[in-house]
Amino acid sequence: AEDTGVRVELAEEDHGRKSSIALRLWVEDPKKLKGKPKDNGAIEFTFDLEKETPDDVAQEMVDSGFFHESDVKIVAKSIRDRVALIQWRRERIWPMIQ
């Protein structure tokens, strides 16, 4: 995944069973963002792998003032890349459960 300057990681162990999972997002390199992110720390949130889209969360983060509207795509892509990795890993490790 391309380095967007925004890092998204699992905020909990993933056992492949729950559809909703805790993620943690923070800005690793603010220079890569168009707008100036509010000087916040790591933002932890729950994401439903089956029902929600990264764009939903990114827009909510912009609405909540964490990021500038012009960065909504970068934030969505960062979340999308991590979610894709989680789903890829789930398919490989727990194919039966999926």
């Binding site: 923070w26 390199d29 720390g41 790591a42 933002i43 932890e44 949130f45 909510e60 003032g65």
Partner: peptide, 27 residues
């Protein structure tokens, strides 16, 4: 505590905590 919580109108909770120094790229 240094945790703050923001709840979006759609209901999602965002919990903000300090990023460990080790995880920030050199500025």
């Amino acid at each position: 505590s240094s945790f703050t919580q923001v709840v979006h109108s759609a209901g999602r909770r965002f919990i903000v905590s300090p990023v460990p120094e080790s995880r920030l790229k050199e500025q």
